[in-house]
Amino acid sequence: MQEFVEFTLGGVSDGVIYAAIGLSLVLIWRATRVLNYAQGGLAMFTSYIALMVINATGNYWLGFVVALAAGLVIGGVVERVVIRPAAGKPHLNTVIVTIGLLILVEGLAGIIYGSKNRSFPTPYSIVGAKIGSFDLGEGASPSAIFTAVAVLAAAGLLAVLFRYTPVGLRMRASAFSGTVAQLMGVRVGRITTLGWALAGLIGALAGMLVTPQTFLYPNSMDSIFVLGFTAAVIGGLDSPGGAIVGGLILGVLLNYVTGYVGSNLPELAGLALLILVLMFRPSGLFASTATRQV
């Protein structure tokens, strides 16, 4: 029983991180129908920026805020400088552009910061909580709880933004029909930039939350990106809520597989889950559209 609780809580803790990456991918997909392969790389880069600030000031929270701000700015700049020129051209162009951006960002990080693994601080303890002699594991540590709260709060704020504010309505209208949005006076270009900026912020948040577990190096977010992408596809690339649920399902599943079957199998299990979802629910579990261009 203790193992089950430990694996479940650990899965939830990992899952919210996959969810955060998935959420950032969903934000961009909804706004521009682009899958940003560089999302993980950008999160890695903002984590480096945070680490520099933390090392220089000794203040974790200053680094945290700077990372989120950097994610916001970098996301917006990437849209304006890299993505917009490829808009309206064949879909493959954008795919290649984002892959090229990933290579560029990882290369830059290697040049600027070197390729060695760097440890990354956590704001709270990673020691798991106990109820009497019942050990809940690292999934119930203060750090894990902070991770879950941070991601769920971000998702909640985004949900409120989308559902209840004029900006959110502009973003949704631009995503579903840029032409109609323009007819209603919406500056679709600005809204698209905002979508990428917010995605950059969420990606930076994911980077800050996951990096303490993985060390920081130029490729440190690659595998996390794949799992975040899987979470987004499971939930349906159109659905922010779906990305959260997809991330949680994936996190818990991978922890069960690691704990009960073998530590070398979780990636395989993740891919198996992805294939199953694509076979039986190709639009994902929560997608609003029935078809997707592959």
Binding site: A173, F176, V180, S288
Partner: peptide, 8 residues
């Protein structure tokens, strides 16, 4: 073709 956003 109307221009309704059906998802909203």
């Amino acid at each position: 073709g109307q221009g309704v956003i059906t998802e909203l």
